[in-house]
Design a protein around this nucleic acid. Structure first.
Lengths: 165, 165
DNA sequence: GACAGAGGCGAACAGCGTTAGCTACTCTGT
DNA sequence: ACAGAGTAGCTAACGCTGTTCGCCTCTGTC
């Protein structure tokens, strides 16, 4: 639902209300329920859309990169800071896995596993680092003078697969 | 406010409502505003309380540890998984810094800087890793078979300060 | 005894997700 | 061509949320 994504990206999670969505598409609130089961269904639709887009960008970044992990890190952060509200919607709650298409999450994570040298623990550590960096940046944790790029380079270098060093 | 913390820790963020808090302390909702300016003031009080407690535990963990970074990692995760809703309340939004006591955040971060060998970029990378690991765990991102401890060890080892290796 | 302040109260407002029940249009089957 | 089904809109309403208003009552002070 393009209108829902607009609401979310323009006004944050508080702006993503069923009534606002209805108003945006020119109908009244209850009529929304003829198209969407409930608000969770709206969020799932946005999550699916965002996760697919995000996964494709990560795949493209890793494919044919000299340093896959560094390229993935840049792509990861770029998308997250460009779509902060959607990134947080995707990551805020435990995913309603039964309402999510099978394999979507695995596909979004595949580039990371590939870039991390196929060690799942290392891949999870790298994912946690990237997610943490993004969340700390999005929630304004880094002080004004902090060199966010340097912290990224530090983490990517430390977590690079041994055979890449 | 102990009652507020109980509400949050027992029932999550949805349970933390002004009306519920009022009911918990035996008064009606509007009377709450004779004691609290608004809901943000309640959240700030919980954040301050939680951040102080969290900071003290981290300080204690680092003090006199053989491997400060590893000890800090254990203490960090332990507190977060023991108080998931409070941890998320502290970290979810940009902090209303003007409503927070001066220096509280800096004090909570001091153990990390100490453990990370005084390199601020490395400290931020380590913080991001720890925060990311906790958030991924709390939001159920790791599949059932994942070895969370191994991922922690991987990250802590990779991000340990060079002089500690 | 008058007065101020603190701390309770009910009523109310706007906004939220959601449901029930009604209506109107459009498509399909005979 | 007409009946029936399904689609998609509507209003009204419920219970919940944070919050404000005005009122009342108690308590301490001069």
């Amino acid at each position: 639902m393009a209108a829902g994504r607009e609401l979310l990206e323009e006004g944050g999670p508080d702006a993503l209300s069923m009534r606002r969505l209805a108003g945006r598409v020119g109908i009244r609130a209850p009529s929304i329920y003829k198209h969407l089961a409930d608000k969770e269904a709206l969020e799932v639709a946005l999550i699916v859309d965002g996760l697919r887009e995000f996964g494709e960008l990560c795949e493209a970044a890793v494919a044919g990169a000299d340093d896959p992990l560094a390229a993935l890190a840049v792509a990861y952060r770029s998308w997250a800071v460009a779509h902060p509200h959607l990134y947080r919607l995707i990551n805020d709650r435990p995913l309603p896995r039964d309402r999510l298409p099978e394999g979507l999450e695995a596909r979004a994570g595949a580039p990371l596993v590939a870039a991390a040298g196929r060690d799942p623990d290392r891949a999870r550590a790298a994912w946690a680092f990237a997610h943490g960096m993004v969340m700390l940046e999005l929630t304004g944790r880094f002080p004004p003078g902090a060199d966010i790029g340097a912290a990224w380079r530090e983490g990517v270098r430390a977590l690079a697969s041994p055979e890449a060093v």
